[in-house]
Amino acid sequence: AITKEQDALMKLIVEAYNKHQIPQDVTKKLLQEQYSTEENFLLLTEIATSQVQVLVEFTKNIPGFLSLDHEDQIALLKGSAVEAMFLRSAQVFSRKMPKGHTEVLEERIRKSGISEEFITPLFNFYKSVGELHMVQEEQALLTAITILTPDRPYVKDQQAVERLQEPMVELLKKLCVLQHPQEPQYFARLLGRLTELRTLNHYHAEMLTSWRVN
């Protein structure tokens, strides 16, 4: 069972996850009709920027994060921003969206000058995350675990990061057993998504370059 401390940790992470969301006025624009490729491009850039700001606000609430070395904080955030962004946006596609919203979002991403080579793996990821039907606690913890990945580039004190990540992984494992008793492989499937996320990192870097060329 989940200990008192673990429960407190979970509540704190979920509360921070819910508190820091992309502002309504930004997401509302996503649903407005007929945008040109250029406007889609600018809109996606605006949302990506907002997601990074939301990511930092969320991360500040992760116990121990602000006591890490300042440059390591930057390295962790920089190294995980893209993954955290896709993990979060995946939930938009898997949550019960009002009729037609998902299609509009998908159309917007497809019509923003991003090459097909990147869009296919991105939507495969969204689909595989959607099939997991993650509960909110799992989404918040998985995001925190993604950010606290010790082997990001330029992280100096990896052990300090590991000490923060480890209890989160333990807690997520217990949560998966409690939430998905009939699926013993569920935790492993969640971690599998993190591996898939890392490949998106690579595609994202290439996508940015091709986007700029277009």
Binding site: T49, V52, Q53, V56, E57, K60, L66, H70, Q73, I74, L77, K78, A81, L208, T209, R212
Partner: peptide
């Protein structure tokens, strides 16, 4: 690339935010 620089600036600015609060 410029976008990465942008990313780091956004992160540094948002992190510093807690000094103003």
């Amino acid at each position: 690339p410029a976008s990465n620089l942008g990313l780091e600036d956004i992160i540094r600015k948002a992190l510093m935010g807690n000094l103003e609060e």
